[in-house]
Simulated scan of single mutants.
Amino acid sequence: MGDVGTAKTEGNAGAGGNQPVKRRRGAARGRILDAAARRFYADGVAATGIDTITAEAGVAKMSLYNNFDSKADLVRAYLEARHEEWLGLYERRLAAAQGPADAVLAVFDAYADHAGLAYEHGFRGCGLLNAAAELPAGHEGRTVVRHHKEQVESLLAAHLQELLPGQEERAEATAEHLAFLLEGAIVRAGLEGDAVRMRRARDLAVSLVGAL
C-alpha cells in the first residue's frame, strides 16, 4: 500500500518482559484522522502516503506513529470514523421519522446527506466502498466496510419487521432488495458526481415500501 510502517515501542524490563508504552491520544490524532479522511476520499488510499497526511495535518511523522501502528491502522480508523459519521446522520433522520416506513427512508436520507457533504473534489461515491476496492483480501479495513453494509441492511430489516409484523422472511427479503437499490444508486451518484440517483432511489423506495 506504500508508506506502511509500524510504531516503535519502548519496553520496561521486568518479570513480564517488555511492555509497550501506552499511546498518547489528543488533538494530533484528530488532525491526522481529518487529514487522512480528506486525502483518502479525494485521492484514494493507495495514492496517499504518510508524508502527505502528516504535512496536511501539520504534525511530525513520529506523531502519527504515536497514534497509529501503521498506515493500515490509520485506514481502519478512517473507515470506522466514516461509519460513525454515517450513523450520526442516520440517527438524526430517524429522530424525525413518523413510524417504520419513515424509518426505512431515514436510511436513504442519511446516505443522501453523506453524499451532500462538502468534499474537496465533489462526491465520488461511498468512501467505504471506494477504500475497500483498493484494499487487499484479508485487510481489516474490508471487515469494517462489510460490517457497515451489514448493519445498514439490518437496520432496514428491523424497520420493515415493524411494518410487517410476523413476516420476518418478507421483511428480510425486502431489506436486501432495498440495500441493493441503495448500493446501485450510490455507485451511479458517485460516477455522475451529484445526488440525482440518490433522490431517484428514495422515490423508488417510497413506492416499494408503500406497496407492502
Rank of each mutant, 00 (worst) to 15 (best):
E162K: 07
A27E: 13
A81V: 02
V75Q: 02
G14C: 05
A35E: 08
R31F: 08
R23D: 14
D73F: 04
R25N: 15
L155D: 04
V21H: 09
Q167V: 04
E85T: 04
V21A: 14
A118P: 08
E183P: 04
E153P: 00
W86I: 01
A106S: 13
A157P: 02
R24A: 14
G26S: 11
A7Y: 01
R188C: 02
R200I: 05
A157Q: 04
L135W: 10
A27H: 06
A42I: 02
A157G: 10
Y119H: 10
K71Y: 13
E169A: 14
E85I: 00
A115H: 13
A72S: 15
Q98S: 14
E150D: 15
L94N: 06
A201G: 10
P165Y: 06
A7M: 10
I32S: 04
F68G: 01
A57C: 12
A158N: 02
A95D: 14
G26N: 12
A133V: 07
A97S: 14
Q98C: 09
S207I: 01
V75H: 04
V145H: 06
D109N: 11
A157W: 02
A112I: 09
V4D: 15
V107P: 06
A57V: 09
G11Y: 09
A189H: 01
A118F: 05
G16C: 00
D43V: 03
D34W: 11
A60E: 09
A185S: 13
A42P: 02
A132S: 15
K61D: 13
A96Q: 14
R29Y: 12
Y78Q: 13
L74T: 04
L74I: 07
F68T: 01
V206L: 07
G141F: 07
D34T: 13
A137H: 14
H148V: 03
A55K: 12
H114N: 13
R199W: 11
L79A: 10
E153C: 07
E150F: 13
G88E: 08
G58L: 12
H159A: 12
N12D: 12
N130T: 03
D203S: 10
A133R: 14
I53K: 00
D3I: 00
M198D: 02
A60T: 01
Y111V: 08
R124S: 13
L156G: 06
E168D: 15
Y41I: 03
V145N: 03
N67C: 15
A55S: 13
A96P: 01
G88D: 11
E80L: 11
L156E: 04
L129C: 08
A35S: 15
F180M: 10
A42M: 08
L79N: 05
G88I: 01
A201Q: 05
E85Y: 07
R146P: 12
S63M: 09
S70C: 13
L74F: 10
R199G: 13
H177N: 07
E84W: 06
D51E: 12
D3E: 09
V209E: 00
A179Q: 07
A175F: 01
K22A: 15
A175K: 00
D113W: 02
G116P: 11
